[in-house]
């Protein structure tokens, strides 16, 4: 497919490619950052590792948490955590998350999973809240003391939770393919809630297995475009960038690497040991420890 007539102009006007370091340059202490994916699935881990290697601090993190949460907590980056859960599936409870939670080291705002997307959707729709029954009667209301109820203005008069919009300064997402314009393809069977993070955020950065000049695909493949490029501020090429989490359909999660991460919590040098010997100083160093990005990208998908 040749470029259509206006592509040259568009391509010149929109070039959203940048490096992970350039993304980090745009972040500030105290920002609210949403991280896409779900548990050990499709986490933008290259960008997360870049945060860990930076001086950033006092962040509010919003996520359906996987290993990135324990890592960010253990490295002292997080002041407040807004989450439905933190889990790596086959390792149900992340030991670093547990350590920090149990020491009272984070302002933990637990939510029902459905409420988290509801708050993101409210932000994306630019309304202050969305009503729901979910959360009423539970400790969602006590561990989030800022939550209020609202009474239906109709004859039913029902009292509902007014789930406040979750505004993000920045969303960090991972995709299979991106192009320089900010179009993305997320090809796994489940898009999770990435699109709602993108629309709830002031700025969204997407890392992708590969960044191409232009995504030009058939109608079926185009369905894997889950959010619109107007919400994508920048794209970062990061082959293996979800490792050790999965990025279906490209690769599965790295069971051995996730087990080693969990085991580090019990090691004598704990997080610092993992930070120094695994996260290291660069992505090049990181992937060298796992046999390179090609080896990581060949990890088979899990069978359920």
């Amino acid at each position: 497919m040749g470029p259509y007539m206006g592509f040259r102009k568009l391509s010149a006007a929109l070039d959203k490619r940048l490096t992970a370091d350039a993304v980090i340059e745009t972040l500030r202490d105290g920002m609210t950052i949403g991280i896409g994916g779900w548990g050990p699935r499709r986490k933008p881990m290259s960008l997360v590792r870049a945060i860990i290697r930076s001086d950033l601090k006092d962040l509010t993190i919003v996520a359906y948490g996987g290993p990135e949460i324990g890592m960010l907590l253990a490295s002292g980056k997080v002041k407040k955590l807004v989450y439905g859960f933190v889990s790596m599936d086959f390792i149900p409870a992340d030991p670093f998350f547990r350590q920090v939670r149990q020491s009272g080291g984070v302002d933990a705002r637990e939510l029902d999973e459905g409420l988290l997307q509801w708050g993101l959707r409210a932000a994306g729709m630019r309304v202050p809240f969305l009503p729901t029954r979910t959360g009423l009667g539970s400790d969602v209301m006590t561990v989030n003391p800022d939550f209020r109820t609202v009474t239906s203005p109709y004859d039913d008069g029902e009292v509902l939770l007014a789930m406040p919009a979750i505004h993000l300064d920045v969303a960090l997402l991972h995709a299979n393919v991106a192009d320089r314009l900010g179009n993305t393809l997320v090809q796994g069977a489940d898009p999770y809630f990435d699109e709602y993070y993108a629309r709830a955020a002031e700025r969204t950065y997407v890392s992708a297995e590969k960044v191409v000049e232009r995504i030009a695909v058939d109608a079926d493949t185009a369905k894997a475009n889950r959010y619109e490029r107007c919400f994508v501020t920048g794209v970062v090429e990061a082959p293996g960038g979800a490792h050790p989490t999965s990025n279906p359909d490209d690769y599965g999660w790295d069971v051995k690497a996730l087990k080693a991460y969990a085991a580090a919590a019990d090691a004598e040098d704990g997080w610092q040991g993992y930070r120094d010997t695994v996260i290291g100083d660069s992505e090049a160093d990181y992937f060298e420890r796992f046999g390179g990005t090609d080896a990581v990208s060949a990890i088979p998908l899990p069978v359920f």
């Binding site: 948490g65 989450y83 439905g84 859960f85 933190v86 889990s87 149900p92 409870a93 998350f97 547990r98 939670r101 149990q102 020491s103 009272g104 637990e110 939510l111 029902d112 999973e113 459905g114 409420l115 029954r133 979910t134 959360g135 009423l136 009667g137 539970s138 400790d139 969602v140």
Partner: peptide, 17 residues
């Protein structure tokens, strides 16, 4: 500052109501 922190509330508030 719990004695044991586990996964979080997951979908329980929404499921149960």
């Amino acid at each position: 500052s719990p004695k044991i922190a586990m996964l979080g509330m997951r979908g329980l508030p929404g499921n149960s109501i």
